[in-house]
């Protein structure tokens, strides 16, 4: 088990190094002069020189890379050119929205997907199964921004239970959670649909396994056999999808954040790109890569907890 953990940790660090080199190269080295890119064609020589100075573009690419990495390791992500505040501060601010939003959406998606996936699998070929499969098909097909607008129309405009957008901050946790509820639902719908389908097919796979027959021969009812033997075996593919979904939810909520006027990470990176704020783009990208790799690492560890056969490797 210790060996498994160390190998996973090593692979995590290597992935991070490779990713940082690629991001640095794509943003700072390949396009040529970042300062020209940021200021556009009409910039004067003086402003360009001033920006280069500010960005620390004086040294070689190698020394700039190590400066960048060293800064990030100590929590210094540079200063945003457009906002004129440290990127770390910006990101921390945005994470207060994005992290809870992603967590809520993921929790919702899992809470919905597990029971309906199990229900569909246990009623394979029946009316319930067809109903659930049809509904999840729809859930995947409906664009989530459109679904988000329907939610706003119903719950914010007509019923007036929720506000139509904006984020009041965490001073009042109840209000904060309330404002994240509709966006989380909108984000969770397609995720839950996908997850439910994965759950269903993973379970069906286990139903034909010999150990399920053994369980029934011991006197377990069908439901007991599913709960006690099938579920944990079906968890591996489901965990993989959950890991991917969390990574996606963290940064992929741009459209939903726009629909609900939420100051999240997705919007930050989007604004960074449109305003050519390379410092923001570079650091936030790196941060997202880090979170994706970290989640993958956590999923790997969970695999080993679920399946004893992996602990031996």
């Amino acid at each position: 088990m210790l060996r498994y953990l160390l190998i996973r940790a090593l692979s995590l660090s290597l992935s991070l190094i490779v990713a940082s080199v690629v991001i640095f190269a794509v943003i700072e080295v390949i396009p040529g002069d970042p300062a020209t890119y940021m200021l556009g064609l009409n910039a004067t020589d003086e402003t360009l020189a001033a920006l280069r100075d500010e960005l620390g573009l004086g040294g070689s690419a190698l020394s700039r890379y190590f400066d960048w990495i060293g800064g990030m390791l100590t929590g210094d992500f540079g200063t945003s050119y457009t906002y004129r505040v440290p990127v770390a501060e910006l990101v921390l601010d945005r994470l207060q929205v994005s992290l809870p939003l992603a967590a809520m959406a993921l929790a919702l998606s899992t809470l919905i997907a597990f029971p309906i996936g199990i229900l569909a699998a246990s009623n394979r070929g029946g009316v319930v199964d067809y109903g659930i499969m049809g509904a999840t098909q729809l859930g995947i097909a409906i664009p989530n921004f459109w679904f988000a607008m329907l939610l706003v129309l119903l719950f914010a405009v007509t019923l007036q239970w929720f506000s139509a957008g904006g984020f009041p901050g965490w001073d009042n946790p109840f209000l904060a959670l309330k404002s994240l509820t509709l966006p989380a639902i909108a984000l969770a719908l397609p995720q839950a649909s996908i997850l439910a389908r994965v759950m269903r097919s993973a379970l069906l796979e286990t139903f034909s396994q010999d150990y399920m027959r053994t369980a029934r021969a011991k006197g377990l009812s069908r439901g007991q056999a599913i709960r006690r033997h099938a579920l944990r075996n079906a968890l591996i593919p489901v965990l993989t999808i959950i890991g991917l979904q969390f990574s996606f939810l963290l940064a992929g909520a741009i459209i939903i954040e726009n629909v609900f006027f939420l100051p999240g990470l997705g919007r930050l990176i989007f604004q960074g790109i449109t305003q050519r704020d390379l410092i923001v783009v570079e650091s936030v990208t790196m941060l997202l890569v880090f979170s994706v790799i970290l989640v993958t690492f956590l999923v790997d560890i969970t695999y080993a907890l679920v399946d004893p056969r992996l602990r031996r490797r």
């Binding site: 396994q209 053994t214 021969a217 006197g219 033997h229 056969r309």
Partner: peptide, 28 residues
Amino acid sequence: SEPALCRLRGNEIGMIFQEPMTALNPVQ
């Protein structure tokens, strides 16, 4: 009935199968 059969299986009648390699739950 199915519940009656569940009480019977493993209790009155036990059964073993051909493939011992796959007959047990690998995660228990």
